[in-house]
Design a protein around this nucleic acid. Structure first.
Ligand SMILES: [Mn+2]
Ligand SMILES: [Mn+2]
Ligand SMILES: [Mn+2]
Ligand SMILES: [Mn+2]
Lengths: 223, 223
DNA sequence: TGATTTTTTTAGATTTGCCTAAAATTTATT
DNA sequence: AATAAATTTTAGGCAAATCTAAAAAAATCA
């Protein structure tokens, strides 16, 4: 009945985890920026997370999640990404519309619900943005991702994820017929504007700007 | 981002609506009992709901939802029942397991989610307990329900809902092969213990105790 | 190294939703 | 009608999560 963690606590844990992954360490200011709150509020919560054994924290020192904190984070991320997969594949949302709703659904507390949802979706390993979905033990598949800008010529690769989930990006990808899962290879690179030309089976070559290439990640499929 | 109503406010609105439907009027004490809180807390919230134009309220007078309050209640009930239907029909929960989870899911705020879920489920009109699901305008199908104890002899009827969603009831109904949707007719009534004997097609007659009959509601299908 | 800037924490308030105890009001009973 | 009982509201407080302003510590720079 009374939840183990409040939504606020869960949001802090999840974002500490993400920032830790992305930049190795987290600061009070980073967290305040991401959670759209003030540094003073962050400090208050860090103290609370410490008393709940989720965080290692001493005033003015670097802080990081405990093992228990990391496991907790992975379970929240698991729910977030499973719901995103559900929204796109089952309810037919576009993948730029699902994040906000998943931010709410990830806080629904029911072990059974998560496991049944996972089974119904047939245990998906990646969410609609290409991010890996932790399994019920917190393990996730590793993606051998390369930024499209670094993909060598003539290597068959598959689009696995995008940085940024903006509507503008989605619009552009739709226009160019590129999706998560699309197979392509790089045919030309132009030094003038760092644009590249990619080829998808049965389609004519498509030009990709530097900005777009930097937003796309691919996995090499065959040499 | 900031929700229109808090979860606490939504729970009050929904329960005021249900009590109003069930007994014509609501009291501070009733609400406190159902929401597992104290009468003083209820009074606090009633004042808040008044300022939000959801409730007509004057100290010591009877109170009732405004039109806006009733519409709000119906949208919460719509979500609750749609999610219950989803949990049973899509994720294969038993119908005695879904209420708690639906209590959480009903507070997820996304008009689009509700409409997409409704469409995915093919616009169900009754939830797994036989209760009608309001449509997007708040309209719901009326059930012409009769308590099984009052069903005349030899009238073909269909089980439409149950009062109580306990595991114990579910176990008994499973044993007797009775479900929402099961067709039956009453063959005998015994004055000694008010038990009745019902007949389902292709099955031998089954005895139903007074307690069980009072928990089952049916709709007459044919004369 | 000493001064300045940036980051982080503390101090003190505020809002929401809840509590207990006591007062006010309504309803029921003699 | 007067008293007793039940219901409902007020008064005053508490915990969670936030805020602003100010103090403390750390990092940077001259
Ligand atoms: Mn997301
Ligand atoms: Mn995602
Ligand atoms: Mn329910
Ligand atoms: Mn129900």
């Amino acid at each position: 009945m009374t939840p183990n963690l409040t939504q606020a606590e869960e949001n802090y844990i999840k974002n500490i985890y993400h920032l830790q992954q992305a930049s190795g360490s987290v600061t009070t200011n980073d967290l305040a920026a991401i959670l759209q709150t003030k540094p003073a509020s962050v400090t208050d919560m860090l103290k609370k997370l410490k008393t709940k054994k989720l965080l290692q924290y001493e005033p003015y020192k670097e802080f990081c999640l405990t093992l228990y904190g990391r496991k907790t984070a992975l379970m929240i991320i698991r729910k977030h990404r499973l719901w995103e997969y559900f929204l796109v594949h089952t309810l037919r949302f576009e993948w730029d519309e699902v994040h906000e709703v998943a931010e709410q659904l990830e806080h629904v507390e029911s072990k059974k619900l998560v496991e049944k949802l996972d089974a119904f979706l047939d245990f998906p390993r990646f969410d609609p943005h290409g991010d890996p979905i932790p399994d019920s033990n917190g393990k996730m598949s590793i993606q051998h991702e390369v930024n499209l800008i670094n993909l060598p010529f003539n290597k068959q690769a598959e689009v696995t994820s995008v940085r940024s989930q903006s509507t503008e990006l989605l619009e552009l990808l739709k226009h160019k017929n590129i999706n998560i899962g699309t197979k392509l290879e790089v045919k030309k690179k132009f030094d003038f504007d760092n644009s590249i030309e990619v080829k998808m089976k049965n389609l004519s070559p498509v030009t990709i700007s530097e900005q777009l290439a930097k937003a796309l990640f691919v996995r090499v499929v065959a040499s």
